[in-house]
Amino acid sequence: MVSKGLLTFPSNPSIAATGVTAGPLEKKSPFSSQFDKIYTDERMHLKTNEQGHAKMIEDASMIALSKIDAVPSKADFFFAGDLVNQMTPSNFSASTLQIPYIGMFSACATSISSLLMAALVTDANLSEITLAGAGSQHNAIERQFRYPVEYGSQKPESSQWTVTAAGIAVVTPNRKKTPVITKGTMGRVIDLGMTDPLNMGAAMAPAAMDTLERHLKGHQASEADYDLIMTGDLGKTGFTIFKELATRKEIVVSEKFQDAGEAFYGGDPKFFSGASGAGCSSAIYFSEVYGKMMTGDYQKVLLIATGSLLSPLSYQQGETIPCIAHAVELMMK
């Protein structure tokens, strides 16, 4: 049954393995012990930030494949994306991996939009192994969206820090003892007129709310059904607003509600409102959340990755910030 962006995957495709890579600063994350690889150099010992970015996505893919003893030539599809112009890091990593590839752009919600595509091809019985994920590299993204890295601008409390990380999931037909993808909801673009690129969390919160509401209603579920409902990168500010919006919709906001962006750096005020970037949700979802599903700590989770679909051009032309959120439901059976 498919209707209005609501997805169900009756064959229950599995996330057979994951690979997460991160930059040196991300060692400060309380989840860093769960990342598969942490580089000592922010450019991964390559010449440019963008090359390092591609390397990170490539390494995460290789690590994820190695965990099921597979090689890139065995994979059927590769869905990935990032935030650099025309997604060149993902394109270059796909060039190295030589897996049939479609670049995905949902800004920081790409982790889940890729996963939904992977679940779709797998559920349609078209794939044995599909890679899905996203990444971001701080320096490459900051220069793209904001100022040069060394430029001194006073960042407000509400601003977020783009993470250097990549997360890739290997999606296969149903396998025992692995988390499975049961349902999903494709987001709608929501724009409530926010214009401040240094307060993205606030702009994205209504999109997360819209997708959560549509998912619960559409799949006849309740927030109580889940062990964890985790948004992507709303940060402290956006997450506070999201919880307020949810409460107004009479959703019971408990400890089960978490945000990957707020949690990523453990609330360190040096990172202001928290983490953001396509690598933020993918790194947390595919390490911490995936790990806790494998150990059985979580049986059913709802992941809602959020993305702001602005560009420096649209911002300078005075446009508002359009936002999106995609949701996926994982179960450990």
């Binding site: 600063l25 060394e150 820090w161 040096k270 990172f271």
Partner: peptide, 8 residues
């Protein structure tokens, strides 16, 4: 002389 560093 310099390269940009993304530290805070």
């Amino acid at each position: 002389l310099f390269k940009a560093k993304g530290k805070n």
